[in-house]
Amino acid sequence: MSLLEVRNLTVQFGPRERPVIAVEGLDLELDAGEVLGLVGESGSGKSVASLALMGLLAPQARVSADVMRYDGRDLQALSARERRALLGREIAMVFQDPHASLDPCFSVGDQLMETLAAHHGGPRAKLREQALDLLRQVEIPDPEARLKAYPHQLSGGMSQRVGIALAIAGNARLLIADEPTTALDVTVQAQIVALLLRLQRERGMGLILISHDLALVSQLAHRVLVLYAGQEMEQGPVPALFEAPRHPYTEALLRALPEHNRGAARLQALPGNVPAADARPAACLFSPRCPHAQARCHAERPALEGPGDARVRCFFPLADAQRHPLGAPA
């Protein structure tokens, strides 16, 4: 049984008669101990989808799904009380901006102990011990001193470590990390990535890693789901998806990377822009920018085809012979 199973997740904003569709018909499955990469450009719906799972969207967002099951439990049928007991505890999230996700008015220790008290309570001395232990687990040097520190006294990397400590404080089994290293320097990013992976392995957590950085996702994820304008375009295991992408959008994204254009004067850029949420074609979402588009692509929307772990939303998925050879990555 999957740890997480979501069928036909749709998130809409704005007036009902003219809705802005942020996520459309998204299916997600994740096993315990698995790392799923959620990849897409701005406006692809990757963050909205994760916030919908966490129940963190504003009330005016309209979230619907045929199935939304965590560990056999129907998330949509839970009472508010049961939901609160689950979200933030077993299902937890690490956010992009570590400074914005910590409260500037309270010390690191206060925030950790408040979280632990909400999860299981207990005497203050015991909570303090647990907070210290969490800081050790996220490899913060001198944890005793850090317990008294305020967020503004921490570097970005240290703040993100605290953010991770808060997320695992309730013994999370499913962790959603939304661009957890985007705000960090590259050497610090490498440290945070190593930390996340170690915790994920040790605790057997399911991890959904949301990122725009294809190279980063290729290093961490077992399976990758590519989103474009709110819809899944392709899903596949790593490294197959990166070595032999079947959707023209995935291929175009990979070809636009500088590391695939070594020695070439120009990058192989993808023309045009992601269509705005109110200007999406009724046909294939990618058809206006697709170099392989045919008449049918401009007329109707393709469905996802293929088995769950290697499916593609394209009438004419790329065969090996069609695919432009990618320059060998370094």
Partner: peptide, 23 residues
């Protein structure tokens, strides 16, 4: 060397022992 080692590259595993500390 640390910068280059820390830069994610497609199809290469994440560095197991990234450079330590912060500026």
């Amino acid at each position: 060397q640390a910068l280059l080692a820390a830069t994610p590259r497609l199809g290469q595993p994440a560095p197991a022992n990234p450079a330590r500390g912060e500026a």
